[in-house]
Design a protein around this nucleic acid. Sequence first.
DNA 1: CGATATCTGTCGATTAATCTACAAATTATC
DNA 2: GATAATTTGTAGATTAATCGACAGATATCG
Lengths: 181, 181
Amino acid sequence: MSKVDRRILKSQEAIKKAVIELMSEKSFDSITIQEISDRANVHRATIYLHYTDKFDLLDKLIEEYINEMREMNDYVCELDWRDANLVYFEYFERNYLFFSTMLASKGAPSFRTRFLEFLIEEYKAEVDVNEEKNHGLNEEIMGCFMGTAFVGIVEWWISKGMPYPPEVMASQVGILLERVV
Amino acid sequence: MSKVDRRILKSQEAIKKAVIELMSEKSFDSITIQEISDRANVHRATIYLHYTDKFDLLDKLIEEYINEMREMNDYVCELDWRDANLVYFEYFERNYLFFSTMLASKGAPSFRTRFLEFLIEEYKAEVDVNEEKNHGLNEEIMGCFMGTAFVGIVEWWISKGMPYPPEVMASQVGILLERVV
DNA sequence: CGATATCTGTCGATTAATCTACAAATTATC
DNA sequence: GATAATTTGTAGATTAATCGACAGATATCG
């Protein structure tokens, strides 16, 4: 596990930040590599050192957020629903620009799909169909139910400009998810 | 006039920003090169590529702001006193962290001296001792009078946390300077 | 439609930044 | 005052980023 050269991290950070910013301003299709490198203040060729094209860049960007959330979940899965949700909603708040951009209609529809896929996967592991309470229920369906509900909530919260603080969202959604599971 | 490699600009920007930040938190003497490079997120050796030591770094930092103000003055000297002052006070506001740090008692006393020196020089060029109004007055003394007054005002304004907007400061100080000259 | 401009992806040469290691100098601590 | 710990400034090897140029692909516009 040799550590990565800080130049790589700095370049990638600048590039990713530039893409998110630009995507919040205009459609992904209309963004050029030229623009990204200008905004990131790196040479155009530098982008090609890290990504094959702008689609690869978007994919890697999305996957990075998904992975971050997965790692958060590994750490957080011992907490109760409320506290676990708090970690998530604070994360959404911290990365508001990314989520508002990616979940916006014009943004990257691929992210919503990927996000939901991730959530279903994680929730599925959380439910126990062997409990008597859940007798006759299907793991897949429960995961999907919770996942779509959660995505919907996050979309609503973000698109409305975060009308409630993360604490409130965490409590409310925590109660509801607990009833379902 | 070949343009400078952007890596140089980025490194120097990061280093200068780091020094200003650190100087706003602790005394210059207690700051190490190590800390600066950590804060700037550059390797320690990179600092030595641009500066011989931290004193050289501070000198160059100060001189850069002085030069920037000199260039501003070249551009602004055609305007009336009020408008010229506005450009300056907006500059101070924009660079609040630098000026509040450098003009603070514990900051860099060398900057106040250098700043005053610069102002006297510029004001001296502004006064006309051949006017009948100024008959018998000394150029040097007038420049010094205006320079110290201006430094004092800026110190007061910055140390009080900019209690009035740049527009107000520009008008007020403009009127006063106009009376003097 | 053709002409013009812009963008793309890639290349090779060059430069700046990085990393590690080192001895010397300085500072802190007992 | 001796010892330990930190900081300093430098050096050499390596790597990433830069620059400029290129031909080919894609828009843009008259």
